[in-house]
């Protein structure tokens, strides 16, 4: 990986003047993605799903995109990019497009885990070349923090609020990486903008694959999660250090954990600074934190075991 000084000299794919909240990590992730892309080898074309990131970066007559960019709707970043990629194949074959182009789709958890899951599954199964990046902010933040299937257990949102008799979301979050693993794609990963070197490595690897790849990135949302704008990267780091958000890859079906905290922090460290979990710390709700910890531990143990067994879908 190049030094940050070298990367900082590159032309940025996403520029300033967008309307994201101060401290929003959508753009941080995208900037790291562009920094990692080997734009001396290929050009990038981007599709976006409707969401905070899209409305903030493509507000007519302004665009924050320095690369070709298309947005069509909420649930179809994957099918839109598959059309773009099919056109690329067709026009390349006919000599009308000469350059090498790689395709990236940006969506959030709403457009990925929920309303966009079918389009994503279809596009992956068809084998289009695209890197799908899910900026997972754990809820429908663009419409005001409604629960999604990525909202964690206990998280209070505007449609799973904490109340006098309810404690926030009652279900654990969907394990999207496992859902996508069933497609037996070459490369899936989970990353965090706090660990930029790891994220960039993953993007570079994914863009080298001539097929569909997926990276699930934690996208701390200062507004929806309720923490000060300067804490976004810290929150992401705490998610990694508590193993709430393990950094790992599924390479041809084989699990590789990229970061094992020397001292795995208790989940309270991650939950405490966030308003959406504040109710968990009320007297009498200790069992909810215990349950949260149990879910995190179980997933982490399961990942460790999977790494240990080292089985791949493919022959190496």
């Amino acid at each position: 990986m190049a030094l940050l000084n070298d990367l900082a000299k590159k032309k940025e794919g996403l520029v300033s003047g967008h309307r994201l909240c101060p401290g929003c990590t959508h753009s941080v992730i995208a900037r790291q993605v562009f920094a990692a892309a080997e734009t001396d080898k290929y050009d990038i074309v981007v599709a976006a799903a409707t969401g905070c990131f899209e409305v903030s970066t493509g507000l007519y007559p302004y665009t924050s995109w320095n690369v070709p960019w298309i947005h069509t709707a909420f649930e179809n970043a994957a099918s839109t990019i598959s059309g773009v990629e099919a056109a690329y194949k067709a026009l390349k074959k006919k000599g009308k497009v000469k350059k090498d182009i790689r395709f990236i789709a940006f969506a959030s958890d709403g457009g990925t885990y929920d309303i966009g899951l079918q389009a994503l599954s279809g596009a992956i199964e068809r084998g289009h070349q695209f890197l799908y990046i899910c900026n997972d902010n754990n809820a429908y933040q663009n419409t005001g923090n409604q629960r999604s299937s990525a909202t964690p257990f206990g998280g209070s949102t505007t449609t799973s609020p904490n109340g006098k008799v309810k404690f926030g979301k009652e279900q654990p979050r969907k394990d999207i990486v496992s859902v996508l693993e069933g497609h037996h794609m070459e490369y899936i990963a989970q990353a965090s903008p706090s660990n930029w070197r790891d994220l960039m490595n993953k993007v570079k690897k994914a863009l080298d694959v001539d097929g569909p790849t997926y990276i699930n990135v934690i996208e701390p949302c200062t507004t929806g999660w309720g923490f000060p704008s300067n804490k976004a990267i810290e929150i992401a780091q705490l998610a990694v250090d508590t193993c709430v958000w393990p950094l790992y890859e599924v390479i041809k079906g084989k699990v590789v954990i990229n970061y094992k905290p020397k001292k795995k922090l208790p989940v309270e460290e991650y939950l405490k600074p966030q308003r959406r979990f504040a109710h968990l710390f009320k007297k009498g709700n200790e069992y909810l934190i215990e349950e949260f910890q149990k879910q995190v531990d179980r997933h982490w143990e399961w990942l460790l075991k999977r790494e240990e067994c080292g089985i791949s879908y493919f022959e190496d």
């Binding site: 000084n5 990367l7 300033s16 967008h18």
Partner: peptide, 17 residues
């Protein structure tokens, strides 16, 4: 600061500094 800035607002000179 550059790699974490959400608003691409860290100015960079020709040496990437």
């Amino acid at each position: 600061c550059w790699v974490y800035c959400p608003d691409s607002s860290i100015l960079v000179d020709e040496n990437g500094k």
